[in-house]
């Protein structure tokens, strides 16, 4: 009974996070300007990281935690590199 209830809650949360990823992707595709797309990418990385964490809770494996940490790292560095590119036109000066 409790397992069923928790499974339902986690699945609902995963659907919401998936929708969040879709919204972020919509902003990446739609854009209007480059900074909007970068912002969308940042939000996409964040929701993907949270989705991985919910998979970790669902399966009870700590493997997903490491994947989430790596995604958080990559999201940070890619957003910083892209913003730097928008500001200067090059990443490494």
């Amino acid at each position: 009974m409790t397992v069923m209830m928790l499974a339902f809650a986690i699945t609902a949360a995963q659907i919401m996070l998936g929708t969040a990823m879709a919204c972020a992707s919509w902003r990446i595709i739609r854009g209007t300007r480059a900074q909007d797309r970068v912002l969308g990418l940042d939000a996409l990385y964040l929701s993907a990281m949270l989705l991985l964490l919910t998979y970790g809770i669902q399966t009870g494996r700590t493997l997903y935690f490491e994947a989430a940490l790596v995604i958080a790292l990559m999201g940070f560095s890619s957003t910083v590199a892209l913003s730097k590119f928008l500001m200067r036109g090059e990443v490494i000066e």
Partner: peptide
């Protein structure tokens, strides 16, 4: 889990 994902969804809805 529900609360956190709902807030994240709300944030990206705001993005749209």
């Amino acid at each position: 889990v529900l609360f956190g994902s709902a807030l994240t969804l709300l944030g990206t809805i705001g993005l749209v």
